[in-house]
């Protein structure tokens, strides 16, 4: 029934329009690779921020630099480095995938395959890096 008196109706207490909510959108490889790309990108940004600060300490004094770097030589930071390398490796390989998707029409049709190739390359890289790195962290 068309309601011509809509203008005179009581408005609800709170403006409920435009409220987000509902279920999480169920995307596929494309959407989740983008979410991961964002998360790793922001994480890498904050790492670089801290990294520039601690590296610039060498201009203050070599002792101050050594003191700060010394605090990084713990097993917890060692595991953090695994996470850091994991984030950078994913961001790098997925970045190449995004470039291909933007410039090569074959890649827009096979982006899911490319995503799993990225995951595969990430696994191979991490298999090469993680054992060697952890031997260094826990070996001394």
């Amino acid at each position: 029934m068309p309601d011509s008196t809509a203008g005179t109706l009581q408005t609800p207490d709170a403006p409920a329009k435009q409220r987000p909510g509902g279920t999480l959108y169920r995307g596929n490889e494309g959407m989740w690779s983008w979410v991961l790309h964002r998360i790793t990108g922001v994480a890498i940004f904050f790492f670089l921020l801290v990294h520039i600060l601690d590296t610039s300490l060498v201009r203050v004094s070599p002792e101050a630099y050594n003191a700060v770097i010394g605090t990084y030589q713990t097993p917890i930071m060692g595991l953090g480095e695994v996470a850091l390398v994991g984030a950078i490796v994913f961001h790098a390989f997925n970045g190449l995938r995004i470039i291909l998707v933007d410039f090569w029409s074959w890649a827009t049709r096979h982006q899911k395959l490319l995503f799993w190739i990225v995951v595969g390359l990430w696994v191979v890289t991490m298999l090469g890096f993680t054992p060697r790195h952890l031997m260094n962290v826990f070996g001394h």
Partner: peptide
């Protein structure tokens, strides 16, 4: 390039 649009399109537009 999240490809949600390509997967949502009911007409199969890429």
């Amino acid at each position: 390039t999240t490809f949600n649009c390509t997967e949502a399109c009911p007409r199969g537009i890429e």
